[in-house]
């Protein structure tokens, strides 16, 4: 009778938790989420309040310029038709708005265009569709004078939904390009 030892089959498997440089940031996010979940099970302590007199309040007069997150929150989302990466006239107006912001308030930042798709497929083609959407927006921005070297692109395919309901409206919300600013 033969004898086989199988332990070696899987013994070599190692766990790399957050082994790349970038995931470290997200690990913190994970940890924060864990803590939040734990706290949810406990009774929440009363909110500590403190009265501050108006005399103590100082407005920082140097902060006229908007922070990166402030500018980013004003950037629009560009939506697309089913299986399409062409830009509708209505969306062109939103891109015009993004270009205006990009040339003024966000002039010192780079822009990352994130292409997204609805849930119908996780294959490479769907990712390419998301990228083509991002590229359509990039071309429209470059046509209006934005320096192409300031624009990076990525496609998240169907893996970054803002809505997970199984409805037509929800799928339409996910066929989009988001603007993110990079320092």
């Amino acid at each position: 009778m033969k004898s086989i030892v199988l332990s070696g089959v899987v013994a070599a498997l190692l766990v790399f938790t957050g082994c790349s440089k970038d995931p470290a940031v997200d690990q913190k996010a994970d940890a924060a989420q864990d803590v939040a979940q734990e706290q949810a099970a406990q009774e929440v302590a009363p909110v500590a309040t403190e009265t501050v007199s108006t005399e103590d309040s100082v407005v920082n007069s140097d902060s006229n310029s908007m922070s990166m997150s402030d500018v980013e929150s004003q950037l629009p989302t560009i939506y697309f038709g089913f299986d399409k990466f062409s830009i509708d006239p209505e969306m062109q107006e939103k891109i015009d708005m993004a270009v205006a912001l990009g040339n003024k308030e966000a002039a010192s930042y780079s822009v990352k265009l994130e292409g997204n798709c609805d849930e119908w497929g996780s294959d490479e083609y769907n990712f390419a569709l998301g990228l083509k959407r991002a590229n359509s927006v990039k071309k429209a921005m470059v046509a209006q004078g934005v320096d192409a070297s300031r624009i990076a692109m990525v496609s998240y395919g169907e893996s970054n939904p803002v809505c997970t309901d199984k409805t037509q409206e929800c799928w339409a919300k996910n066929r989009r390009v988001d603007f993110k600013l990079l320092p």
């Binding site: 790399f16 957050g18 790349s20 995931p23 940031v25 997200d26 690990q27 994970d30 893996s159």
Partner: peptide, 8 residues
């Protein structure tokens, strides 16, 4: 067995 966790 999860071999890569954290990130996308």
């Amino acid at each position: 067995q999860a071999v890569i966790q954290g990130g996308f």
